[in-house]
Amino acid sequence: MSKYFTAEITGNRFLNKYFKLLGLRSDEGPMLPEPGQFYMLQAGNTCDPLLKRPFSIFKQEENSLQFLYRVRGKGTRSLALMKEGDTLQVLGPLGNSYPLPEGDFIAVAGGIGLASLLPLLARCPAKAHFFYGARNRDELVMAVEAELLAKDMVIATDDGSAGRNGLITGALSDYLSSHPGTSALPVYACGPAPMLKALHRVIAEKGMRCYVSLEEHMACGVGACLGCVVKTTSGYKRVCKEGPVFDMEDIVW
């Protein structure tokens, strides 16, 4: 059940140069989102930016919600200016969620894709072989928290400033080859399109099962506008409604 409600900002602080953590409180009662679900958040107090923005739920307790976001475009810059005590309109929780793994699993996060996967790691502690890729060390966030929740963790950066030098999908490929048996584990992934495309090649080659959380330009978040579709083997599907989590092999890459 999703709701449309007013929430008060309890915090909106920078974790490092790029990432902020937004805390919201509402008296609407527990919302109980599942890992992978998202909320549409108002980003400012005027008609510009006009549309709400989708954010993966990062953490939820009783009447509070937390969102991890990267300050990048007009919407997130506007959201970043909002202060403790301000109120904003919230719609959610929306979309489907990650099917919960029964045992160990592999999780692959690229950049801010971490925000979507960390709740899954928190729900299933010490079960994830976690692969976390970013452009450089400044673009890594919450790595310590992720490591505490994961079974083991591999970091890769494009410039080698932290972890392995290179793509996270390369690191995953090597890991699968050197750890027999891990190819049977289910994979959960969220990240930029080039990462997901590269991941698809690895997954297809090994014949693995992968659940992927997708992003697309979104207007309504509830399945009405048909703006956020993704091409699947059975036609266009709405990222906000049938997704954001899809079986990787159903997507036309």
Binding site: C47, L50, G75, E216, H217, C225, G227, C228, V230, Y236
Partner: peptide, 30 residues
């Protein structure tokens, strides 16, 4: 939502983009 005698697939993405105090859409009558 607009209906046609036979189903329509609509346009490829991006289908929507925000503009100052507005938005552009090209859903393609899916």
């Amino acid at each position: 939502k607009g209906l046609s005698p036979t189903p329509r697939q609509g346009n490829p993405v991006p289908r929507v983009v925000e503009t100052p105090s507005g938005m552009l859409n090209a859903i393609g009558l899916q």
